[in-house]
């Protein structure tokens, strides 16, 4: 294994591109699922809805206490059982590996988004809730029209930073042998034997995308504070 030759990276480019596409779509899907579920969990806790609020707290605490790899394993076992139960099917329903990955990352990140949004909810002055109530707004409208727009704006940069972390975390699907960007690089390295070049290329792609994204977040933060 002598001499570094980056031309092998060009030969692998289509394969890496396919991997990157999966990484990005996984990030977007997990973000959408995560932010929706996370917001609901946060509101359930904020309103102290009976049964739901403690369940949400347990869920968040558990998700934040065990390694993501462990969570991935569990979801891959349990998803067919849960989907079978939810859809009312008498038996477990097979769920494809990609779909499982989307849902797993979405639900895992939901715990983290939930904590961010909950902190934002607590920062809204009590007077606003009281004012809404005085104006006879339903809790749903209060949250949709008054509270959430402010909260999402305030915690926006933190949410985006968490999403950059999520983008990096998706590389762990490698453990389940899915072909994301890292998986593609690893499989090419096994085929062509150039692991130095392939891993360096993968690292560089992650570095460029994450750095660009964090620069954009910093810019947004400055603009919204002025």
């Amino acid at each position: 294994m002598s001499g570094i030759d980056f031309s092998v990276v060009w030969q692998a480019a289509p394969y890496l591109w396919a991997g990157l596409t999966f990484t990005l779509s996984l990030t977007v899907a997990a973000f959408l699922i995560g932010i929706s579920v996370g917001t609901l969990l946060a509101i359930a806790q904020h309103l102290q809805v009976p049964v739901l609020a403690p369940l949400a707290r347990i869920y968040v605490a558990v998700m934040r206490s065990i390694p993501l790899i462990m969570v991935l394993f569990w979801f891959f076992f349990l998803m067919p059982v849960v989907v079978g139960y939810v859809t009312g099917s008498p038996r477990p329903v097979p769920v494809g590996a990609h779909a499982t990955a989307y849902i797993t990352f979405g639900l895992f990140e939901a715990a983290y988004y939930c904590e961010i949004i909950r902190a934002g909810l607590r920062a809204v002055p009590r007077g606003q809730y009281e004012a809404c109530r005085a104006m006879s707004m339903s809790p749903f409208l209060t949250y949709r029209l008054v509270i959430l727009p402010q909260v999402l704006r305030a915690v926006g940069p933190i949410v985006l930073n968490q999403t950059i972390v999520l983008f990096q975390d998706t590389s762990l699907v490698y453990v389940l042998s899915l072909t994301d960007l890292l998986g593609a690089a690893a499989k090419m390295a096994q085929i062509n034997g150039r692991l130095v070049e392939m891993y360096l290329a993968a690292a560089l792609i992650y570095l460029v995308i994450s750095t660009l994204a964090s620069q954009i977040v910093t810019m947004l933060k400055r603009r919204s504070w002025r």
Partner: peptide, 11 residues
């Protein structure tokens, strides 16, 4: 990792 659970639960 998942073949045993999937066989056992009938997936």
């Amino acid at each position: 990792s998942n073949r045993i659970p999937l066989i056992q639960n009938g997936t």
